[in-house]
Computed example of a mutant assay.
Amino acid sequence: MGKVIVITGGGGILCSTMAKALAKKGHKIAVMDLNLESANLVAEAIRKDGGEAIGLAANVLDKSSLERAKTKVNDQWGSCDILINGAGGNHPLGTTSNPFLLESDLKNTTEGFKTFFDLDPEGIKFVFNLNFIGTLLPTQIFARDMVGKSGCSILNISSMNAFTPLTKIPAYSGAKAAVSNFTQWLAVHFSKVGIRVNALAPGFFLTEQNRTLLTNTDGSLTQRGQQIIDQTPMGRYGEPEDLISSTLFLCDDASSFITGVVIPIDGGFAAYSGV
């Protein structure tokens, strides 16, 4: 019998791929996204393929918005069995222009150029809130219904940044490290009430968010894009489908004794020292 699965950030490329794969296994999918149109498009695609899905608008930083979404899920299918916290992202105001600080940078007056000392606290707060608070609040809302049920779990989306921080993006790296730590904390905290908590840590996947950072308009790699491929033993970027097997496994009762793990899906990036 299929489970009721709620996916935040479900309108995005990675989470929509996960949603469609889970729907093919007979699960009922609530596709939640800040953009209702994106959520509805994914839900419609699932229904056209013979699955069950609804699209819902919800802000992962707004409890009342999440409560309204939960009510709709409950009215449609009953209580949530699995929550996938997929909403997240970065912000330019939490990013430095260069990977290393040079003395000459302090005299650089180029518009938009940012050193560590120029990072905007509001941009950093945005990144931490979206990734960490945006994981905590949906868990508070949807996990309450899981208490005492069997076969319930939470799957967070961390990043290989959580293992080794990338240059230039301190806010995002720190926020995803918080998600990994929170995953372990929750796994222990919920261990007596039958809720497993795990996370995926994707490496580099080409999405609309990072395409201009990693590739040029002609499709060739940028300098940073080439650095990433050189650091990835498998020699390629991840495809959305690369997340499916781990997602299905961690959401399935076959992993009933697995909790508190963060699985890198990064082509060996986090394991490679560079030499």
Score class of each variant (00 low, 15 high):
Tyr172Cys: 07
Gln209Tyr: 08
Ala178Lys: 03
Ser159Arg: 04
Ser158Thr: 13
Pro165Asn: 14
Val188Trp: 03
Pro202Lys: 13
Val197Ser: 14
Leu155Ile: 09
Val179Asn: 08
Ser173Tyr: 06
Lys176Ile: 10
Thr207Ala: 09
Ser153Asn: 14
Val197Leu: 06
Pro170Cys: 07
Ala199Val: 06
Phe190Val: 05
Leu166Gly: 11
Leu155Asn: 04
Pro202Cys: 06
Ile157Asn: 00
Ser153Val: 07
Pro170Trp: 02
Ala175Ser: 14
Val197Asn: 09
Gly174Asp: 08
Trp185Gln: 07
Ala175His: 10
Phe163Ser: 05
Thr167Trp: 10
Ala187Cys: 10
Met160Phe: 09
Gln184Leu: 04
Phe163Leu: 09
Val179Leu: 06
Phe182Tyr: 12
Ala171Phe: 02
Ala199Lys: 02
Thr183Arg: 03
Ser191Ile: 04
Val193Trp: 10
Val179Ile: 12
Asn161Lys: 04
Phe163Gln: 08
Leu155Ala: 00
Ile195Phe: 01
Glu208Ser: 15
Leu155Lys: 02
Pro165Tyr: 11
Ile169Tyr: 01
Thr183Gln: 01
Leu186Asp: 02
Thr207Trp: 03
Leu200Asn: 06
Ser158Leu: 01
His189Ile: 00
Ser180Met: 13
Ser159Ile: 00
Asn198Phe: 12
Asn161Gly: 09
Thr167Arg: 06
Asn156Gly: 03
Gly174Asn: 01
Phe204Pro: 03
Ile154Val: 15
Gln209Met: 15
Phe163His: 06
Tyr172Val: 05
Val197Cys: 08
Lys168Trp: 05
Ile157Ala: 04
Gly151Leu: 10
Ser158Cys: 11
Ser159Lys: 00
Ala187Leu: 11
Gln209Val: 14
Lys168Ile: 11
Pro202Asp: 11
Val179Cys: 13
Phe204Cys: 03
Ser150His: 10
Arg211Tyr: 07
Ile154Pro: 03
Ser173Leu: 00
Trp185Leu: 04
Tyr172Glu: 02
Pro165His: 14
Phe190Thr: 06
Val197Arg: 12
Ile154Lys: 02
